[in-house]
């Protein structure tokens, strides 16, 4: 099984041509070959959400996506959502609301929340709970995370 595939994928806005092994996951590609280690690995079975990235606008568990499947896609990781040191409103809200403790779930949480708010800027507390149910956090008890996402939603809507 030494075949490799050449894929072309846009990662955080940058087009890259990469050759990948057939059994390589997107998570492994990002973390161990491209050095985008902000994408975390907590279970590799789709249960924790720490590896969440956004592929073509949708949050997915990168541990359950093969790298070859991302051919032709656009992938956003935690490294790609701030611009020139300016934090995304979600990132700022996570800091301000104490939604970060050990930080291991944080990148996945922020990306899951971002995909939700991109999809539905008016997401309410119930929608937020549902969207983040696949992201486990053992430190914060989720309370401040839920608050932070609601606050960021408000900021993104222009304070409403």
């Amino acid at each position: 099984m030494n075949i490799t595939h050449n894929i072309r994928v846009i990662i955080n806005g940058q087009t890259r041509e990469i050759s990948v092994a057939p059994n390589e996951t997107l998570q492994d590609l990002l973390r161990y070959r491209l050095g985008l280690v902000g994408t975390k690995s907590g279970c590799e079975t789709g249960d924790c959400g720490a590896c969440t990235v956004i592929v073509d606008g949708k949050a997915v568990n990168s541990c359950l996506v093969l790298a070859v499947e991302s051919n032709g896609s656009s992938v956003t990781t935690i490294e790609g959502i701030s611009s020139n040191g300016e934090l995304h409103p979600l990132q700022q809200a996570f800091i301000d609301h104490g939604a970060v403790q050990c930080g291991f779930c944080t990148p996945g949480m922020i990306l899951a929340a971002k995909s939700l708010l991109d999809e539905d800027p008016n997401a309410n507390e119930k929608d937020i709970r549902l969207a983040l149910a696949g992201n486990l956090c053992r430190c914060t008890g989720y309370v401040s995370i839920l608050k932070a996402v609601a606050a960021a939603g408000k900021t993104l809507r222009g304070g409403k």
Partner: peptide, 17 residues
């Protein structure tokens, strides 16, 4: 806010793996 929060929301904080 905790002092390392910024590095964590940016995905810059470094864990052993």
């Amino acid at each position: 806010p905790r002092l390392d929060a910024r590095s964590k929301v940016l995905g810059e904080a470094r864990y052993a793996d």
